[in-house]
Design a protein around this nucleic acid. Structure first.
Length: 620
DNA sequence: TTAGGGTTAG
């Protein structure tokens, strides 16, 4: 150690922080420095080097510890801001915010860099209140003269959905940078839709890879494959913007959202051609692939990518587990859990994924065991975990047990918990409990009619037409607020979208003829329309009920698929809401009679219909 | 030490 000057120690530590493989060496050096006492070296100098090392390498526990050991008088505002930005970069957002408060209290100078960090944290947390306080402070200190601070502030408002404020700040900016434009673009695409977003994009005086990515991902996510491909090719081939790992993640995530396998293939071919293997080796890209394949219906590819990955983190595992959950593979998740805990420390989301996997597979006892083991991993059961447990017990028909657990919660149950329990009551015909739960839900969210619809359907199933008429009458008077069901099907690289009773498709006539044929054939095979599961007051007239069921969007999408694809081609359909019971039983029979595999991704999970049954074993 | 696009649940 004698030959190492302080300057060298600093350089060496900086080198260590930049190379993952040297992190351990840096820590060992720390240990040596601590034991050797290095009396000659000024302690604060070494502490400062060590602090920079830990902060840069993301070991925030040690960074914070070393930082606290440096006397206040020997820390300047750059040190404070380094800690602030590292906490934010490595995801310790609340700690970062607390640090900012401490900086103000200790009268540490807040410069433009610190302000940028603060707004970044507020944006990530979508904490408008704190962001507004920061805005006031920034105005007072004249920090808004910096375009970077303004951009960060606009981004904060954008992430919180305040498009007007973003535009106002943008107009006020004297020198708009390409980042300022990109913040506006991203905000507009997110909150005002693709068309308005495209207007901003076309107006931009200069575009870089980020702007292109925002626009392309916007198209991909909304299912506009043609526009996405056109733009993607222009971006890469005409403008020469290569895809980096962030672009890849962004595109893959958009593909996952819309189930777009065409773009996935394009991205894959591009990566192979440009020899970007190391990019595919990136843990975030790998995780995005695991997630994308699972969400696009291909759980085997998801698992294959997972096994090929050289590095995995807790997010990778969570992505795999939630993918398996969606595919009803709860047993696989339970079996893999011990392997996971040997590799990474599970977090809250892990338990949500495992519990939801149990729920989708009807594994009640395993679910209880998992719920009880939360504390073993240093976690407290949160409202989401309770929601999963209530869902699991409810689906399994153990409604009373589910309600008891809900009443035991330390925090009051939210809409998710109550809504899930109401759903289970409806499946298992528990009218009395349902009435109670519905009252609580209506109080919590008075404008939402869906709960009343569920309850009125339950009365209808019991033959209580007097109550049904009264409820539906009042609903009709107040107007309903129900998300319209939409299904889309991917055929030969393009997406076809259908809503219930849709007649806008160019091949409508053929589709409805096919629908008639399908209904007739499945009826003769034993299909009975599930009329009691009806759904919206617009469908209340009894004679219209069966008709309304026939026109559900997923049936139209499947009929279109049967019409235009070769025999035995699997059909992939994506639905924005949960598939209804009637469509579920109809699809089983369709899969058998037409010898087709039908894969439907609904809001919660995948249903793979094959040979007359569904992969969910009716746990949904 | 600093702004914009990025992986996980419901």
């Amino acid at each position: 150690m004698k030959c190492l000057s302080n300057q060298r120690v600093r350089l060496f530590l900086r080198h260590c922080s930049q190379h993952r493989s040297l992190l351990r060496v840096g820590k060992e050096l720390h240990a040596v420095l601590t034991t050797s006492g290095s009396k000659k070296a000024p302690r604060s100098y070494l502490s400062n080097s060590l602090f920079q090392f830990y902060a840069a390498s993301g070991d925030m526990t040690n960074a914070q510890k070393v930082f606290d050991e440096i006397p206040l008088s020997e820390k300047d505002n750059v040190d404070w801001t380094t800690l602030l930005s590292s906490l934010s970069r490595y995801g310790f957002l609340v700690d970062s915010m607390k640090l900012f408060v401490e900086m103000r209290r200790k009268r540490v100078e807040i410069d433009d860099v610190a302000a940028v960090c603060l707004f970044g944290v507020c944006a990530k947390l979508e904490d408008l209140w704190f962001g507004e306080q920061g805005h006031g402070f920034a105005v007072k200190m004249g920090l808004l003269n910096s375009v970077k601070v303004c951009n960060a502030l606009m981004d904060m408002y954008g992430k919180c959905g305040f498009v007007g404020e973003v535009r106002r700040l943008f107009e006020m900016l004297e020198e708009k940078s390409v980042v300022s434009w990109t913040v506006v673009l991203d905000t507009v695409v997110k909150w005002e839709g693709l068309e308005n977003g495209r207007k901003v994009f076309d107006e931009m005086p200069e575009r870089n890879a980020v702007a292109w990515t925002v626009m392309v991902a916007g198209y991909v996510g909304a299912g506009f494959t043609g526009e996405a491909l056109e733009l993607l090719e222009e971006m890469v081939f005409k403008c020469g913007h290569g895809l980096n790992f962030v672009t890849l993640c962004s595109l893959l995530s958009a593909c996952a959202q819309s189930g777009n396998l065409v773009i996935v293939r394009w991205v894959h071919v591009y990566a192979l051609k440009t020899g970007e293997e190391e990019m595919c080796d990136h843990v975030m890209v790998g995780t995005a692939l695991v997630d994308m394949y699972a969400k696009c219906g291909n759980i085997d590819s998801s698992m294959k990518v997972f096994r090929l990955m050289r590095r995995r983190n807790v997010v990778t595992w969570n992505a795999l587990f939630s993918g398996l959950a969606m595919h009803g593979k709860g047993r696989v998740v339970i079996d893999m859990f011990p392997e996971m805990v040997r590799e990474v420390k599970p977090d809250d989301l892990t338990f949500s994924a495992v519990l939801s996997a149990c729920s989708h597979s009807g594994l009640v006892e395993e679910g209880w065991r998992c719920f009880h083991s939360l504390r073993l991993y240093g976690l407290e059961p949160k409202v989401d975990h309770y929601a999963c447990m209530v869902d699991l017990l409810g689906r399994a028909g153990r409604i009373e047990e589910a309600e008891m657990l809900m009443r035991e919660m330390t925090v009051p149950p939210n809409e998710v918990v109550l809504g899930s329990l109401l759903g289970s009551c409806s499946v298992h015909g528990k009218l009395e409990i349902a009435e109670r739960i519905e009252r609580e839900l209506v109080q919590m969210s008075p404008g939402n009619m869906e709960y009343q619809i569920v309850l009125s359907n339950m009365y209808a199933a019991e033959g209580r037409s007097d109550v049904v008429d009264r409820l539906r009458g009042s609903m009709r008077n107040r107007g309903i607020r129900k998300t319209p069901g939409m299904s889309s099907i991917h055929v030969n690289g393009s997406v076809h979208r259908f809503s219930a009773g849709d007649r806008s498709h160019p091949r409508t006539k053929e589709i409805y003829l096919k629908l008639n044929e399908v209904i007739e054939r499945i009826r003769s095979a034993g299909y009975v329309p599930h009329v009691s599961a009806l759904v919206s007051p617009s469908e209340v007239d009894l004679e219209d009920k069966e008709l309304a069921l026939c026109f559900h969007s997923e049936k139209l999408a499947v009929c279109f698929g049967l019409l235009v694809t070769k025999p035995r081609t699997p059909l992939y359909v994506f639905k924005n809401l949960r598939i209804c019971q009637d469509c579920h039983s109809a699809m089983k029979i369709v899969s058998k009679i037409y010898d087709r595999e039908i894969i439907i991704r609904d809001r919660n999970r995948f249903h793979q219909f094959k040979g007359g049954s569904c992969s969910c074993s009716d746990h949904w």
